[in-house]
């Protein structure tokens, strides 16, 4: 899909450290993420999960170490990256439809009028027809065709989340970054969304990195997790990382991972934040 470094990993981090100014939030992360891989970034609030996404987007610089996206230093406006930020409320009467949002992913960054030769009708392969086909394809890929022409403000949280995902997909990215895509969804929609992202990563051969609070809706579909806590980062399969030993070492305090009969893993013995990870997100709206 993208010509740059077809064989190399999508993300390569070596001795990476994150922080603001002189304050280091976490350090010593070395990992690679390949095409077709689905990675969840987990950890308590304020651990620096979103900072990792911001560094990949080129919005924050690493404090130390190196980070490469498709073999190059991350830069703002990289068309090979599709990004979905945390959901926020949308006024229900705003004159703005799902497909309008998806279209922004295609040409929203371009200044100037659309040249008249792009206005042409759908006869032949005019640029307009081409972009409409791309939009329709991205909308179909997330299963939103039925409601994509409705106003964004009148959609449910899950529907809206899918359109944001379609916007990120419309430019055929190699790397998909999603910040808390499961927040504010009920359990059933969390599972559906997690499965959809995993399926897209595999079928479109793109690397998907998502920030999440809770491993369990993702446990069956993610390839690896990246757990950030106590200034450190641990990466591996969920069964490797979400264990009493690894997390106790990361937190530098005794932490216990309980596994229930269905294989779900629960982290106990941390402070309030871990016990009630959603407490800070209730304000975000529906």
């Amino acid at each position: 899909m993208t010509p740059q470094v077809p064989g190399g990993p999508v993300v390569r981090a070596t001795g990476l450290a994150a922080g603001y100014g002189n304050r280091v939030v976490w350090e010593g992360a070395s990992f690679e993420i390949d095409r077709g891989e689905f990675v969840a970034v987990l950890g308590p609030n304020g651990a620096g999960k979103s900072t990792l996404l911001r560094m990949l987007l080129g919005l924050n610089r690493p404090v130390a170490g190196s980070l490469e996206v498709l073999g190059a230093t991350p830069r703002r406006g990289n068309p090979a990256i599709g990004y979905v930020p945390q959901a926020r409320p949308f006024e229900s009467e705003t004159a703005f439809r799902g497909v309008d949002l998806v279209r922004l992913g295609l040409d929203g960054h371009r200044f100037g009028f659309r040249p008249p030769w792009e206005w042409g009708s759908s006869s032949g392969l005019s640029k307009r027809a081409l972009s409409q086909a791309q939009i329709a394809e991205a909308v179909a890929a997330v299963g939103a065709t039925a409601y994509a022409t409705r106003r964004i403000g009148q959609m449910s949280g899950g529907e809206r989340q899918r359109l944001w995902l379609a916007q990120a997909l419309v430019g055929n990215p190699s790397l998909l970054l999603l910040d808390e895509p499961l927040a504010n969804l009920d359990l059933r929609n969390q599972a559906i969304m997690a499965e959809l992202i995993g399926e897209l990563a595999h079928s479109r051969n793109l690397a998907a990195v998502i920030v999440a609070h809770d491993l369990n809706p993702l446990r069956q579909v993610v390839d690896r997790v990246c757990y950030i806590a106590g200034n450190g980062v641990a990466i591996g399969t969920p069964d490797e990382v979400i264990t009493t030993e690894v997390l106790s070492r990361l937190y530098g305090a005794p932490v216990e991972v309980l596994i229930d009969s269905r294989g779900r893993r629960f982290v106990v013995g941390i402070d309030e934040e871990i016990a009630h990870p959603h407490a800070n997100h209730e304000l975000l709206g529906r």
Binding site: L57, P85, Q86, F96, L104, G108, W164
Partner: peptide, 11 residues
């Protein structure tokens, strides 16, 4: 409508 993504897309 989408300031975070717009910023990331260099708008």
């Amino acid at each position: 409508v989408d300031p975070e993504v717009a910023e990331a897309r260099r708008v």
